[in-house]
Amino acid sequence: MFWFKKLLPRILFGIGIALIIASAFATQYGVKTSSSWSIGYNSQSTPAILAAVLPTGSGIAQINITGVSQALYLNLTGNPLTLLGEAGGLGLKTVNTISHDDFQTGVYYLVTGLQGNPITAEQAFQGLVKNAQKIGNSYVVKKSLNPEESIVVLAFPNSSTVLITESFKVTGYGHISLINGLELGLALAIVSIIIEIITRKR
């Protein structure tokens, strides 16, 4: 098994180097576990507004909306953007779509206006939706999401500007700490060098 003795240190060395680089990278540019995004949305020509939080992983999503008379929400599995296409089929048109992508938190925030008959919009989502909780002047939706799930809020403005704050907190994620990663990486690299030296001496 001469080849294997040769291969083993190479593999250990590769893993060691990768752990050192990845741990250092994670500290500088790695995942953020929470993020939020706020926008003042001009709702003068839009009878309804759709706000969505689309994460890639699991976590707790929260949407706060101020300046609306009613807010309904629904949980979706799969790609919620297809919902917009289906809304189009009901005579509803999406306008003035604004989005924000936070790659490090793995979440995509979206706000879009819906033009058309607001009653149609309400009817279109009826049966699927639940009423959002009202806290003070704001409607608040806070939901725990599994991977491949997203949350969509349908709101009906009663002022010219609607203030929307969307946030997401990642749950179920964790990675090796910088110090553990460096220690393990270094240990593997050293072990691989020792094995290589012993093999060569033999």
């Binding site: 590769g14 990845a22 976590g59 790659f103 990675h175």
Partner: peptide, 22 residues
């Protein structure tokens, strides 16, 4: 060996780039 270090490092970096939870 170059490929090994390249793909191993690539995977290490990709694993901490976005929060994958499953």
């Amino acid at each position: 060996d170059i490929m090994l270090i390249l793909v191993a490092t690539l995977s290490g970096i990709l694993s901490v780039l976005e929060p994958v939870t499953t």
